[in-house]
Design a binder for these strands. Structure first.
Length: 701
DNA sequence: CAGTGAGCGAGCTTCCGCTTGACTT
């Protein structure tokens, strides 16, 4: 129990968390936030003394001095300090650094560490009642991780500056992500699609028309390579009778899925809502920090950077009460349990609504469209995770027709179960309803539907699939999945095309270099092995210094060797163009700069003339200008496309011009994208209705 | 939501993982 008038200061990482805890603890406690790490290596240099047991040189993170100072003054007012950063490696290190920094100014202040894995009044009071000491082995594991990443990143990047281009970067995580994307790109490109055909029969019973697919021919799965073959089969069955030879029912049990982690939230938001990982995290942050829902601002979801599916006991009780009230039939006897994924550090709960009674509908008017969609997804996923399974029934009807076997399928829902609560996340139903059919019965065959297909190879990564595979391989953390994608895009190693991540020429050059010269470091098992050894450090079975020593020797040797011997490919990225310099007559090349591509004279540095890359001719009659990419001031604004003759010519469009000309009117085509059509090209001329879809492109190719 | 309009780039960059902030694909 607390003494009267005494004051305890608790420091957590997140300001929103501090606010919540303040409400739970009330008088006698003040809660402050460190807002992440305050102490770290300086950005400007390696700051590791490799000669002397890798002693790091830590400094106050730039921009965090104010926070540190205010924590110091807060600490002066307190008679106990409890460090409550997250219960994981990074959190332990934050507490350690805080302790050092705050003890200096308050040598007599008792400082303890407290740990809780969920933000509930019970968990927090328990933690406060049982203060601990900082776990130095855990701190050492974080130190080893931090220094290893610094050593890898700050040695590999300069190689790229020297051999490829200034300003580039490489690292334990981003370079593996790049490698995965490059490897996928290679297999996409080497895949040769093969033609094949399917054959469906359109059948009729009474008023009901349905389709049956050819699934067997001459006793085996049909392999139909071309139109001639498919027509041969359909001709041979022309006057055949379609008689039902078998009717089978199969039941499928569908279990609800676990509540969201960061990774699964990003995946689902990408595939169901079309959000990029960054957008998902931005909107989730808004929901976490809270929205004014009439009765003041409250946090609507639990913390959004988590690797755990664990749910606080109190929240389980609440959701069971809610289901009991709203969907009594769908309440399981016992709550459903989801085991945390392998490698999960489990410092936070799953992502769930803070109050399950805040249904998406009840909040709709207070939320933006995006907030509503994401909140509804989180709410539905959580509530459904504690409901009973769904059961579907599939009826399969077989028609033996001479040497062929046709099958019609239709699936219906037998028991809605957890799917009753899904709206934003609702699954689409497949297969049309079949009429009632019995064995021996004959139906009319209206016509055959032969259809051409091509085997589809591997597909390129999207935000959803790259995050999924990174998590599976243990590469990166919930807080870094979205930034990993961003860094690859920012450095122009990868571009997005139709939501797909496509490696650029630059990305491939860098990946080739890294794979050839540093195969061990960009191997996806490198991180797995590092994690195993970090665990050993945490368990005090290994020294952090020896972990670094084991790695550093060979690595540094290879770095020096590559620096000395590898041939530079600087300038290979420069693309020749048809232009010559207006000032000096030398050829113009296309270069990649910090702000994207630009045209520059090969006479640099004597001739410094540059200009923007023309994307198309200005469509305005009588204007000889070119269309170039422009941005609002500050360079940060949204990209748009305008005429070089501005302000004389004020032509503007938001759609990216292509180098294709409209076959109808000769104006240029632009890239467009919408929900119905996906990505397609259209004519910029408003009077011209020409649409160039991807399908049309595929057929002409 | 609609409107949006420099000039840069070509020596001093870079890592990963915590956090939020500013404003975008």
């Amino acid at each position: 129990m607390k003494k009267k008038g005494s004051k305890t200061l608790i420091i957590v990482e997140s300001p929103a968390k501090a606010k919540t805890i303040q409400k739970y603890l009330g008088n006698g406690y003040s809660i402050a936030a460190s807002v992440g790490h305050l102490i770290d290596l300086p950005k400007s240099r390696l700051a590791i003394d490799v000669e002397h047991d890798f002693q790091p040189e830590y400094i106050t993170v730039r921009g965090k001095a104010k926070i540190l100072k205010s924590l110091q003054t807060e600490a002066k007012k307190a008679d106990t300090l409890l460090l409550a950063s997250d219960n994981d490696r990074e959190g332990e290190a934050i507490s350690f650094h805080l302790k050092n920094a705050l003890q200096q100014k308050n040598p007599r202040l008792p400082i303890k560490r407290i740990i809780f894995n969920e933000i509930t009044p019970h968990a927090i009071r328990e933690a406060v009642a049982h203060p601990l000491d900082i776990n130095l082995h855990k701190v050492n594991a974080q130190k080893a991780r931090r220094l290893l990443d610094r050593i890898v990143g700050y040695h590999l990047s300069p190689i790229l500056w020297k051999k490829v281009k200034n300003g580039l970067s490489a690292g334990r995580v981003q370079s593996v992500a790049l490698k995965l994307i490059c490897e996928r790109e290679a297999s996409v490109e080497s895949f040769v699609p093969e033609e094949y055909w399917s054959l469906e029969a359109e059948l009729q019973k009474g008023k009901s028309v349905f389709k049956a697919m050819l699934i067997e021919y001459q006793g085996r799965k049909p392999v139909i390579k071309n139109k001639i073959e498919v027509l041969k089969i359909s001709d041979s069955l022309k006057d055949a009778v379609f008689k039902v030879t078998d009717v089978r029912f199969t039941e499928k049990r569908l279990k609800p899925r676990a509540p969201f982690t960061t990774s699964t939230l990003q995946q689902t938001a990408a595939t169901r809502l079309g959000f990029y990982s960054r957008k998902t995290m931005r909107v989730a942050q808004q929901l976490y920090e809270g929205v004014d829902i009439g009765s003041g601002r409250i946090g609507l979801i639990t913390y959004m950077r988590t690797d755990s599916t664990r749910v606080a006991g109190s929240a389980l009780q609440e959701v069971r009460d809610f289901i009991h009230k709203s969907f009594p039939e769908e309440l399981p006897e016992k709550s459903n349990y989801y085991s945390p994924g392998k490698g999960a550090q489990d410092a936070h709960e799953a992502i769930r609504p803070t109050y399950v009674n805040n249904t998406p509908e009840s909040l709709k008017s207070y939320l933006t469209k995006e907030q509503y969609k994401l909140y509804a997804a989180i709410w539905e996923r959580f509530v459904s995770s504690q409901m009973i399974m769904a059961i579907t029934k599939t009826v399969s009807v077989d028609f033996k027709v001479r040497e062929a076997l046709f099958r019609a399928n239709s699936t219906s829902i037998q028991q809605k179960g957890y799917q009753r609560v899904l709206h934003v996340l609702a699954q689409r139903e497949k297969g049309k309803k079949l009429p009632r059919l019995t064995i021996g019965e004959e139906v009319a065959n209206l016509r055959f539907h032969p259809e051409q297909h091509f085997t589809s190879g591997p597909s390129r990564y999207t935000d959803a699939s790259i995050v999924k595979i990174l998590e599976e391989k243990g590469i990166g953390r919930p807080s870094t999945y979205a930034p990993i994608i961003s860094v690859l895009l920012d450095r122009y190693y990868v571009v997005r095309r139709n939501k797909q991540l496509v490696a650029t020429q630059l990305g491939r050059i860098i990946n080739d270099l890294l794979v050839k010269s540093f195969p061990d470091v960009v191997d996806e098992n490198f991180t797995a092995q590092m994690e195993r050894r970090l665990d050993e450090v945490e368990e005090n079975r290994q020294e952090w210094v020896s972990l670094l020593k084991d790695f550093y020797g060979d690595f540094k040797k290879q770095v020096d060797y590559v620096m000395d011997t590898l041939e530079s490919v600087k300038g290979v990225m420069d693309e020749e163009t048809e232009y010559t310099c207006e000032k000096c007559g030398r050829p113009i090349v296309k270069k990649l700069g910090r702000f994207g591509f630009f045209l520059a004279c090969t006479g640099f540095p004597e001739c410094r003339s540059t200009r923007s890359v023309p994307l198309a001719d200005c469509p305005r009659p009588g204007c000889n200008g070119k269309i170039i990419s422009r941005r609002k001031q500050g360079g940060r604004g949204k990209e748009f496309y305008g005429c070089t003759n501005y302000p004389e010519c004020d032509f503007i469009t938001q759609f990216k011009p292509t180098n294709l000309k409209c076959p109808k009117c000769g104006y240029f085509l632009v890239d467009k994208e919408d929900k119905q059509r996906g990505a397609y090209k259209a004519c910029i001329n408003e009077g011209c209705n020409y649409l160039h879809t991807r399908e049309a492109e595929d057929q002409s190719a």
